[in-house]
């Protein structure tokens, strides 16, 4: 019953749902942390560099980046299946979204670890 979701990140509806909710919490935490950082710290290059120099913050940032990718994948897959009925353009849009997420994640890893 229903449509197969081979181009989606999850295998079924509940998995998509959990991915979207869990990533939303992570992104909310990350946003609140950064907000707190900006409010409590006099942000200059030193402070910014020190924050990103810490291992745990790199991991937290990568987690947030992966969360954006997962969240956007589920969300845009849903939007594309709502509005684009012909299969070919829908597939091309989904593929383009996934490609962009992939590039963002790899690029983000390069930036975070200074590779």
């Amino acid at each position: 019953m229903g449509m197969n979701s081979v181009t989606n990140i999850g295998r079924n509806g509940i998995q998509d749902w959990i991915i979207q909710r869990a990533t939303a919490y992570i992104l909310a935490l990350y946003t609140l942390f950064l907000l707190g950082f900006f409010v409590t710290t006099d942000v200059d290059y030193q402070a910014w560099s020190a924050l990103f120099g810490q291992g745990w913050f790199k991991i937290f940032s990568l987690l947030a980046l992966l969360s954006i990718a997962g969240h956007a994948w589920v969300g845009l897959w849903t939007v594309s299946t709502d509005y684009i009925k012909p299969a070919m353009p829908r597939f091309l849009l989904q593929a383009a979204c996934v490609l962009v997420m992939f590039v963002y994640v790899v690029w983000g890893i390069q930036i975070l670890w200074g590779l």
Binding site: M1, G2, N12, G13, W17, T81, D82
Partner: peptide, 11 residues
């Protein structure tokens, strides 16, 4: 089982 796809419930 019949409801666990991305459309039936989760839209």
């Amino acid at each position: 089982e019949n409801l666990d796809d991305p459309f039936s419930v989760f839209r």
